[in-house]
């Protein structure tokens, strides 16, 4: 099985001192003898993809719940790719990439959500 994540930061460096508010940016590295994490990540993404596919093909839920369920499964897969395969937590110093990436996802959700919302008032706008 996968060995625990090890914080390999130099104990005297600034990232090791990052406590409190910045502790979530501390870099972490996965070390393992067999790529279990990748195998589990691949298995998980297959389960989520086929789960979404069959729940749509078999109409297991009412349409609005089905949409919510498959969007949740897609979000789960995105988290899986970022966490397992993209080594989101790894960096030389603090993992600063997390902050702009989170901002970009927030902006993306805002753009898409607001676009759908404003177009819901069809009679008023178009």
């Amino acid at each position: 099985m996968a060995e625990p994540l090890i914080n390999r930061a130099d104990p005297e460096s600034e990232e090791a001192e990052a406590e409190g508010a910045l502790a979530f940016l501390r870099p972490r590295f996965a070390e393992e003898r067999f790529p279990w994490i990748q195998v589990w990540g691949y298995g998980g993404s297959l389960v989520l993809t086929l789960g979404a596919y069959f729940s749509v093909v078999r109409h297991v839920l009412a349409p609005q719940f089905l949409v919510a369920a498959i969007l949740a499964m897609a979000a789960g897969q995105a988290a899986l790719q970022l966490g397992v395969f993209m080594h989101l937590r790894e960096s030389r110093g603090l993992s600063w990439q997390i902050v702009p990436l989170a901002l970009a996802f927030f902006t993306a959700l805002g753009m898409i959500g607001m676009s759908i919302w404003i177009m819901a008032f069809k009679s008023g706008v178009s």
Binding site: L101, A104, A108, M111, S115
Partner: peptide, 16 residues
Amino acid sequence: VTDVLIFASLFSAYAV
């Protein structure tokens, strides 16, 4: 990060 925003724009257009 910028590519996330490009695809977000295209998804918005598709949704609309």
